[in-house]
Amino acid sequence: MSRLRKTELAKVGFGLIVAMIVTALGCAILALPGEESGLAGAVMLNLDQAGAKNPVTAVLLNFRGYDTLLEIAVLLLAVLGARALAVDESADDSEHFRSSINPVLIGFIRVIAPVMIIVAGYLLWVGGHAPGGAFQAGAVLASLGVLLVLADINWTQHLSDYSERILLTISLVVFLSVGLATMFNARNFLEFSPSTAKWCILLIEAVATVSIAVILLALFCCGKISNARKYHETTRGRVE
């Protein structure tokens, strides 16, 4: 009893401390200047040279492209981490999983898959001047992949581990290559010339979409798409 009370007391105490922090932060928020443009002006000023009409994309891939490069590395790292933790159990791979395919789900996927691909392509393309971009597109593609996995559509069997790795890393490779390529033009790393910026960004985004999709999917599959089935045998049961 006393033990319980102690725990409760700790919770309440901690809650109070958090409340204090929240209050202080709230005060800070209230104390902020009401109007502040930040870097919006600078972004708008340079937008026409950035190769993307959408300011967010411009910031993401041009002004602060370096962050994005590292961010993709973060994603890759998550996959690497997942792979480091994965347990290879090819021996357990028995056939009884097959029985549980849900025909309704497959039908749904048949309809939704092309739509999602198109949506992804659209998001990618539109990212240059309107909301959208590689992350969103990649996420849509990855969702498709997740659906496929859940439906146990074994599309990954043709994907060797080697090519999977290439897919996982290709966006980084391309990003790096483009960045280095800009340097041949006596510019800085990732400094696109206004004329080619659009295409550079598009190229990067296109490749990134694929990579991000594969990475996110791989994350869902514990690092290895080819392992997907084994890992999600159980998940399926839950979702259905």
Partner: peptide, 29 residues
């Protein structure tokens, strides 16, 4: 912030949710 809205739907809610669900399923076994 439509960009983020899109990203949140796809990644924040969608993928993270899927990840959490599959994780939950895995640890329920």
């Amino acid at each position: 912030a439509p960009d983020i809205a899109l990203a949140e739907t796809a990644i924040g809610a969608g993928l993270t949710g899927a990840l959490l669900l599959s994780g939950l399923a895995a640890i329920s076994q």
